[in-house]
Design a binder for these strands. Structure first.
Lengths: 243, 243
DNA sequence: GGTTGTGAACAAATTCACAGCG
DNA sequence: CGCTGTGAATTTGTTCACAACC
């Protein structure tokens, strides 16, 4: 198969959502392995570093193309490059955070965003008393500046770090300002127009999920007298909730 | 056997992982609806509030038991109670956070944990210069105090908010101290012994996933024959809906 | 020999559609 | 009639197992 045909075939491949969610983890593992001066890596080793099994790694990578060499493994640098390209990480994405409370503050300070190509370009708040302050070299601006800032900074990714009640309105304003990817930290369900991607991180929900499994282990919901059979761990090695 | 039939049947019902992850969202919706003085709620309405479809709500709730009334809907208070019980939220779970940096700090301050039954009972750090400080009324303690604190506080849930390099060691120490549920915020893969639940929240990974879909919308990875350059400014309008 | 890439088998999750019951 | 509860159908994701290839 010639080069042109191959690239067309790759483009039309639809990558499953579950795979997309794992690519960043593989990428991180590859960076580590590259720092450790490895030049090639097997699916087995990559699986170990990423905390999944080797079959899954191979299947996932196969959606990107046939970048491995049988009998050898994958070239670390080449795979890193292909993966970065696929994830759109060949350039920075300036993000705009709305909500300069506890969490917004912490996120703005969090170096992990900048380090991975997501510099915090602006921090907005609705509270006039917060506007004008400076956090980690970033001016706190008014939410009403959103349209201007999106245009000025060319941001397409927004982060919602407001209280729950404000989340939907902020999402609406982001969408109408031209933001097309939103990460929501507010403990509220928000809806976005077609063409806008949304992901959510709900800190309390994560603890509540842990609480469920914790309690299963402790003997299940107790509405009767003591239960003698202590159910074993519901441990499926592949289940996301359990190690 | 009859005397326990109902509770055994319920207990042995294996609730799918995907369902468990949605229960807290339903619960939050129910609390809202209860605050709004509603006494019953349909699967349709609950679905709307939770951002899913009605069939999924009914299927999910059916794993808890037959708590609805045909032609009417679900009793809000009763369903709230059953769900809280199932999730193990009938009592508080004191959590121990390790890592008093940016994120640990923010989490300790974050009221959302306490409000939902997860009071931050201790904040630990390896850095002696941080130990002895006070955050939101919580003393910062040394990581070496972990065993003592777990015993003293009766905590079974731990939160890792350290840099990536420290994450695995902290997880190990938590597990050996008796912590059986861990929420990991460090951008690193950690493994835990059987019988310990683990969930992870990786902030940068979330943005990277958004970046993938963003870029798909912008026209996919650009690699036409010998041009490895990235698209400069991602301001392409055409948007095949992703979500 | 060693390791990838992938159809085929299997498992989990979602959605459909309607019987069953208030 | 209205809405739940659930089998059946469908879709999505995971794992197996082995041919293909270096």
């Amino acid at each position: 198969m010639d080069r042109y045909a191959r690239s067309v075939a790759e483009r039309s491949r639809r990558i499953p959502e579950a795979t997309v969610a794992r690519l960043p983890v593989y990428l991180r593992a590859l960076v580590e392995e590259s720092d450790a001066k490895a030049t090639t890596i097997s699916s087995e080793r990559l699986a170990e570093l990423a905390g999944v099994n080797a079959a899954k790694v191979r299947k996932d990578l196969s959606y990107l193309g046939s970048y491995g060499t049988r009998g050898v493994g994958y070239d670390v640098e080449y795979l890193m490059f292909q993966m970065s390209r696929e994830l759109g990480l060949t350039h920075d994405w300036p993000v705009i955070i709305v909500g300069a409370g506890n969490l917004g503050h912490a996120l703005a300070n969090y170096g992990g965003f900048r380090d991975r190509g997501f510099p915090v370009a602006a921090l907005l708040d609705a509270d006039p008393s917060k506007v004008g302050g400076r956090i980690q070299g970033i001016d706190v601006r008014a939410v009403d500046d959103l349209d201007d800032l999106v245009a000025e900074l060319g941001s397409v990714i927004g982060v919602i770090a407001t209280p729950a009640v404000a989340a939907q309105e902020v999402a609406d304003r982001m969408a109408s300002a031209g933001i097309t990817s939103i990460l929501n930290f507010a403990p509220a369900v928000v809806t976005v127009p077609d063409g806008v991607s949304l992901r959510k991180v709900d800190l309390a929900v994560e603890l509540q999920i842990l609480s469920f499994y914790q309690q299963q282990r402790d003997g299940g919901p107790d509405d009767e007298a003591g239960n003698p059979d202590a159910p074993a761990t519901p441990t499926d090695p592949a289940a996301p909730a359990v190690g």
